[in-house]
Amino acid sequence: MTPFAYARARQVDEALALRAGHPEARFIAGGTNLLDLMKENVARPGMLIDITGLPLHDVETTADGGLRIGALVSNADLAYHPEVERRYPLLAQAILAGASPQLRNMASTGGNLLQRTRCYYFYDAGVPCNKREPGSGCPARDGLNRIHAILGASDQCIAVHPSDMCVALAALEATVEVAGPAGRRVIDFADFHRLPGDQPQRDNTLEDDELIVAITLPARGFARHHAYLKVRDRASYAFALVSVAAALEREADGRIAEARLALGGVAHKPWRDPRAEDLLRGQPCNAESFGRAADALLQGAQGFAHNDFKIELARRAIVRALEQAASQEGTP
């Protein structure tokens, strides 16, 4: 790693002030992705501001029945939190599908949102990459792109966001609370991550001088009918080729009252399309209705040779995840 300075902040305002005074600095919490990127020379901050001492470790119920999760709650503590297990099992499942127990003990909730793509070319500082070095080119488009995007890619970047947790947060319509020099603001999860377009260096809409302080889940947790299906090269401790977060509410007659569908491993952000969910509303739970929703969600999907298989894989995974969600009888 390139030598860097280190400072510790105890309060959010102190962290923001340090950041404002040090443009070369980055915040560090769990560090599981940032330190790895620093070892690879992909990230070279001149200073790290340790935010682990900030008072952002609480999980609390909100006035309207939701759950507010401090940005520094570890992935493990969040997945095993009694309220998350009981009311948001989709989120617990997604978190436990990702990384390893060691990494989940270290990684923070806020940091999970900010982890960067595992595109081989992004990680190799010796080759061009528009995300790492804007304007240098994208070797993935015509290179080894088995793990890359089939939706929402651009001429400049076909990387995917690697998080499992974020796929569930997208389906659950979480919100992201951030603090910056101008105060606090709340970002809808759908607007937090972005598509690469002609600015692939920007993974999300967080400004450089802002800090995530909390993630809030709305009251509706889809605890009864949900599934997180992750398809990957080995059964554990691997990134998703395709993952699906499916959540349903069913009427007394079994028809679908409300549906949520989000995909991981296929785009620069968790992939969701309300039109696919609208198609499910009022429908019976069967292979036809699920297949129509899958086709709608995958509309416009495009492979880049090595990842062509993902399109059919995603279609089948969506149908299976919806079947699992529909048949499941979890805690109401």
Binding site: G31, N105, M106
Partner: peptide, 13 residues
């Protein structure tokens, strides 16, 4: 008491 990867943790932290 919690297991972590020592390679991805800074000693100073």
């Amino acid at each position: 008491g919690k297991r972590i990867n020592a390679c991805l943790s800074l000693a100073v932290m």
